[in-house]
Design a protein around this nucleic acid. Structure first.
Ligand SMILES: NC(=O)c1ccc[n+]([C@@H]2O[C@H](COP(=O)([O-])OP(=O)(O)OC[C@H]3O[C@@H](n4cnc5c(N)ncnc54)[C@H](O)[C@@H]3O)[C@@H](O)[C@H]2O)c1
Ligand SMILES: NC(=O)c1ccc[n+]([C@@H]2O[C@H](COP(=O)([O-])OP(=O)(O)OC[C@H]3O[C@@H](n4cnc5c(N)ncnc54)[C@H](O)[C@@H]3O)[C@@H](O)[C@H]2O)c1
Lengths: 249, 249
DNA sequence: AAGAGCTTGTGAACGGGAGAACAAAATCCG
DNA sequence: CGGATTTTGTTCTCCCGTTCACAAGCTCTT
């Protein structure tokens, strides 16, 4: 949510408009999508792709895509398109995926186990470096080839394995205290799966993945669709419509 | 991504500014957060809460929060705040959580099993109505009290259990064909966990949950942090900085 | 070698959302 | 009963992101 560095426009008079280095947050969120599409194309042996091609496979408007890519530099060739392998590397470099990021997972329940067993991490620049739980009965269990350690060892693990990203899969009630411990241990990025708002000091990034929220957003639209479908036009007062839809399941 | 109905501003001259019924998408995405906070407060026996209180527990700016709530109607009392239980119900009604939404999960691998076993669904307005896989070896297994059925039975299950929301947890390669089957079966909302872009006809909503993308966004910021930390000021060319950070892990 | 045909990169217009600020309403208190 | 206080609902402004549109630049053909 809160950008870490001041990527803002340079207030100094030096009108070096050549966008110093502030890649918009919205663009950053799309770079991984482009990266995936490019990897796919590379696997298929495609050498070059136009912005229209990429737009088709990523579902992103081609103009937006070009503008996004232009923040990284001028890596395309007019009249031709983008060199798939070259662009793929440039994006990977920008995101920092030329190195492997060690990740610690906290809370080896249903979800934590699934994530620990997930092979897709490794192929995308991340490595499960440590698993941690506060349930001593779980300590020693293995998931994806990594053993579970106790929460008390967190500081040590983070330090010696140089972890800077933590994945939080504990119950909601434990989220804030665990987040505090992660921060104290030196973790500066947290991916939070627990349905809880956690607050962290400035300089620490938190991203939230919340299944229920996603479903509820779908439900909101679904409700509108049901209502719209159960009658012809849509010029009625929606309160009535909602009431009707809720009433008859 | 693509809104279903035309919530856009009415181009007709009727300046009925009283925002007919278009709740902004950004607001819809926050309503579940408010709902959760209100449920929490209600459990603690809190009767009323001001926008500042809610802002504190949800992490949302209080002005934004008030504006969001104002789209639903005037449910607050000036000088007092919002009645927790009343507001909670109003939001639940708006999202459609006064009814239970039956959900089908496709692909009972690591992730699908974790979701099927997850108890948090039921308490948030959703019910796992069916589990489907195309691996006959999995058919008959039970997760969270629901048995796995074969993909061939999808149409029947969706119809007879009145499912309109599908959760897609198959490998990426199967995502598009499975999505097509879901749509054909009558599902009109899909929550996609597979790292693949799926295209669906208009009228069908898709939301994507992509773990790797979230991690990659964190990695992007992490890289910038590492670079900024490994040197004093930040007036160097970033290409060099990135190269240095990448070079020394 | 020059023109035709693409495709990129970007300037400019536009729309939506975020946040500050304030007037309107309700309660509290003397 | 009236003014002080609190908190909502809303208006206004600003900023970010999206989209359009097109000139610049590259390749291919003739
Ligand atoms: N399972 C799902 O599909 C799913 C879906 C959406 C959200 N979530 C959320 O993800 C989180 C985990 O879900 P789950 O189903 O895996 O829960 P779970 O109860 O199966 O697992 C929680 C794990 O966290 C451990 N734990 C508890 N307190 C801890 C602490 N203080 N420090 C370290 N470890 C601790 C427990 O020992 C347990 O192993 C929950 O917040 C849940 O709401 C889960
Ligand atoms: N496991 C994770 O933690 C995790 C994390 C992020 C993303 N994902 C993504 O979620 C998806 C599932 O991951 P997983 O680890 O559970 O994989 P998995 O291989 O363990 O499970 C996939 C399941 O889907 C079933 N399946 C395959 N093709 C099917 C089809 N056409 N129709 C119905 N079912 C089919 C398989 O039989 C299997 O049971 C993948 O796309 C993965 O990339 C998983």
């Amino acid at each position: 949510m809160k950008p870490v560095s001041n990527h803002g426009p340079d207030p100094s008079g030096s009108s070096e408009d050549r966008a110093g280095r502030g890649i918009p947050e919205a663009t950053v969120a799309r770079l991984p999508i482009y990266l995936r599409a490019l990897t796919l194309l590379a696997e298929r042996g495609v050498a070059t792709a136009s912005s229209e091609d990429l737009a088709a496979t990523t579902g992103v408007n081609s103009a937006k895509l070009r503008k996004d890519l232009s923040y990284l530099g001028s890596y395309g060739t007019r009249g031709v398109g983008y060199d798939v392998e070259y662009l793929r590397y440039q994006i990977a470099r920008e995101i920092g995926l030329t190195q492997d990021w060690p990740v610690v997972i906290i809370g080896l329940g249903n979800l934590g186990q699934a994530l620990a067993n997930y092979a897709g991490f490794g192929t995308r620049g991340f490595r499960v470096a440590a698993l941690v739980d506060n349930d001593r009965a779980r300590v020693g269990e293995m998931y994806g080839g990594v053993g579970v350690r106790h929460l008390d060892e967190l500081d040590e693990l983070v330090r010696e394995r140089d972890v800077s990203i933590g994945v939080l899969t504990t119950p909601a009630a434990a989220a804030q205290p665990v987040a505090d411990r992660l921060v104290r241990a030196g973790v500066t990025s947290i991916l939070n799966f627990a349905p809880a708002v956690i607050s962290v000091p400035a300089g620490v990034d938190v991203r939230k993945v919340d299944l229920s929220i996603e479903l509820q957003i779908l439900a909101y639209h679904e409700l509108r669709k049901q209502v719209a479908g159960s009658m012809g036009a849509a010029t009625l007062d929606l309160d009535d419509m909602v009431a009707r839809a809720v009433g008859s399941p």
